[in-house]
Design a protein around this nucleic acid. Structure first.
Lengths: 337, 337
DNA sequence: CTGAATGCAACAAACGATTGCATTGATAGT
DNA sequence: ACTATCAATGCAATCGTTTGTTGCATTCAG
């Protein structure tokens, strides 16, 4: 009969080492309370049997989860897949930032059917805190949970009177930047591609309108409510181009994804960018400088955003009631304008 | 004095209901052992205090983790960010498939420095199984863990003699498909953009070479080892175009991301696609039909791939020693060829 | 009216760790 | 030689559940 197989828990290892479980626990934690010699021996033994203490049991005792829930609520825009490049870019940065802090990332794509979707996660005891990527149309639910649960932060708009902590860029200002740039480029006739049902988008639109009003061109804007996915944006835009009599010469897209669809649709209609029409996107995702022509866009610094989100979250986990953060959007000029 | 605050655990609720904790547990699980009347009363009470049993404690007792680890090993190609659209697309599908099975997704971006990176996750007790997105250059480590740990599957190549279970498309065949298509389009002079250091890429290249040899054009292929990220691929390609004397008329890109960079570089060099040069990508990611012109590409069905990965994983969790799956790649013809 | 069958709920032992406190030896101080 | 001190380890309670076993009332057949 062999050694009775693998070492499954701290008690097995204790027997093997001829000590008590408590001693093993301390030894593996490298506690000074245990003689260096014993510690080394036990650690060596653990390595030999490649034994690792059960994290779940540890977390239960220690009362922490070691994981942060990252939720992507898809309320409106149900067609929007989790693999939307914007979400994914932010997710990537979050993964890095959380790993750095020694926490795991529990990913959840959630389609809010009942109002319990958020508490189900935060009250489950599986996570030490939660990060929402986008608020979708769930402001009420988010605010209500945020009222009693501190470690919760969201990417998105910072609206007056909102209870929860958010990180996002100044969408209104972004819209202004884009529009001013187009005005400088000599555009006189504008179109906004994007559905203002989402708060961020409607802010961007508001910024655009304001900039035009400032320039005395308040009535030169057409709004085309294009959805945020490429699959739905392209046909919408294409159809619109077919039907429109006078083409605008400045297009403000609510996202890079929409801008990319616009570039394609314009190309298919034989319209030259930027000669005939100038296009500005929003986000500055990785692909934005790989389009033909490379896209002028409003950059949201998602790396900085992720860092802020994580930073605020951990301060809240520590008990601090932090405020929100609004990032400055910047204009990145490339060849589409 | 109020009700002493929140209900934190099953015992609190038991006291409140005047029953034992065990009864509460059974009641919340809707066990027939508890009288319907008692069950209802307790469930109602739980709802009122929106109490949810602690998942970690439950999992500890029940000996399951309720989560699947999804690991993205970044061995070679360290520049490759987690937000690579390919990874993210697959991740999205995985998130959906796992959620459907009632499991959480524990995301980990791992840069393998020591060989313990994989066991650290699977032996931690936090996950019921693990899915690797890509094998990177870690075949040895993966195979060694797979030898003793059943619930492990990987997206990637299916190599002869490999111990671990994998799901991936037939890269060699994909390379052949792309090349045959270009031959049919009348191309006579070819370039392959991609670094064959990764096993998948080298298979795609092998397929391309084979197809050319078949057609008696074995020496008509130039290889440009472009990296998989857009940031690095574009300058490489651009430089190459500057220096090359005779332009190929057929380009096989190892991925859609590389193809997109190629499209841009070609456009910048005033080369018309597809009139002068035909381009085929690989993957068929969401953006592939939004490029200018829309990209002809080899489609890997990632939705099906994710379903297979999850399916195999759960069969392995149940104890079955499954084989690997190889998916058929298909050609999607658009306007770049 | 007695004894067996049945339905409900309580009890207590796990799951695998951590940690305050008690205990043990050995060394040192007087 | 006797005790005070201290370092090293063991003991046992605890985290919040689940679940096999047991015990107490009923109910019903005979």
């Amino acid at each position: 009969m062999a050694d009775q197989g693998r070492i499954r828990n701290i008690t097995d290892l204790a027997k093997l080492a001829g000590v008590s479980p408590g001693t093993v626990s301390r030894a593996l934690a490298d506690s000074q309370l245990i003689a260096k010699k014993t510690r080394d021996r036990i650690q060596q033994l653990a390595r030999e049997h490649d034994f690792r203490p059960n994290v779940m049991a540890r977390n239960l005792r220690i009362k922490r989860a070691g994981a942060i829930g990252v939720l992507i609520p898809l309320g409106h825009e149900t067609g929007q897949h989790i693999s939307d490049p914007f979400f994914m870019t932010l997710l990537g940065y979050l993964a890095d930032a959380l790993t750095e802090r020694g926490h795991d990332l529990l990913l959840s794509r959630v389609i809010p059917t009942d109002p319990g979707w958020l508490s189900r996660v935060v009250d489950s005891g599986r996570v030490d805190g939660a990060i929402l990527i986008g608020q979708s149309d769930q402001l009420a639910v988010i605010d209500s949970v945020a009222g009693r649960y501190l470690p919760l932060v969201a990417w998105g708009a910072n609206l007056p009177g909102q209870v929860h902590c958010s990180v996002g860029s100044d969408n209104r200002k972004g819209g202004e930047l884009a529009t001013r740039h187009l005005i400088e480029r000599g555009c006189r006739n504008f179109a906004f591609f994007g559905d203002p049902v989402a708060p961020e988008i409607s802010e961007r639109l508001a910024g655009a309108s304001a900039a035009l009003a400032d320039a005395g061109m308040g009535d030169a804007l057409t709004i085309l409510p294009a959805h945020l996915t490429a699959e739905t944006a392209h046909p919408t835009i294409s159809k619109w181009l077919d039907e429109t009599k006078t083409l605008p010469n400045g297009i403000i897209a609510a996202s890079d994804v929409i801008a990319m669809s616009a570039l394609r649709a314009l190309s298919e209609h034989g319209v030259s960018v930027p000669r005939e029409v100038h296009v500005v996107g929003y986000d500055d995702l990785a692909f934005a400088n790989q389009t033909v022509p490379p896209l002028t866009t409003i950059r949201q610094d998602l790396a900085a955003g992720a860092t802020h989100l994580v930073d605020l979250l951990f301060r809240r986990i520590a008990g601090e009631n932090t405020g929100s953060v609004v990032l400055e959007p910047t204009l990145v000029v490339r060849q589409s304008s």
